[in-house]
């Protein structure tokens, strides 16, 4: 049973298919790490270390950037991520 869903080979985040408990070990698709906090179903977990301002890659595409350093196993959401396009003006 897969616990997380990696949507593209170059992604640095994965989606939790069920609630992941704090400290739960995830070993899947050639990766092994443990969750640093509990993460709700449908939310994202870091599957690699992500530096400040580094792109958050999902579906093989950049969906925003880190606004603090994120270590593998952390919950990735609005508290540590921001979209690249704040206003419609930028093209």
């Amino acid at each position: 049973m897969r616990k997380i869903l990696i949507l593209h080979s170059s992604d640095n985040v994965a989606v939790c298919l069920s609630e992941i408990g704090n400290g739960e070990v995830i070993e899947q698709d050639g990766k092994k790490f443990s969750a640093l906090e509990s993460i709700p179903r449908g939310h994202k977990i870091a599957i690699a270390n992500i530096e400040l301002n580094e792109g958050i890659i999902k579906y093989g595409e950049r969906m925003g950037h880190a606004i603090s350093r994120i270590t593998a196993g952390s919950h990735v959401h609005v508290h540590n991520v921001l979209g690249d396009r704040l206003s419609s003006g930028e093209v």
């Binding site: 949507l7 449908g42 958050i56 999902k58 579906y59 595409e61 969906m63 609005v78 979209g83 690249d84």
Partner: peptide, 22 residues
């Protein structure tokens, strides 16, 4: 959407756009 786990507008729109693969 945020409660459901979507963090940015790009992420939400990519979720729809991915119907068209890569």
């Amino acid at each position: 959407n945020i409660e459901g786990g979507l963090s940015t507008l790009e992420e939400k729109s990519l979720g729809a756009a991915k119907k068209a693969g890569n």
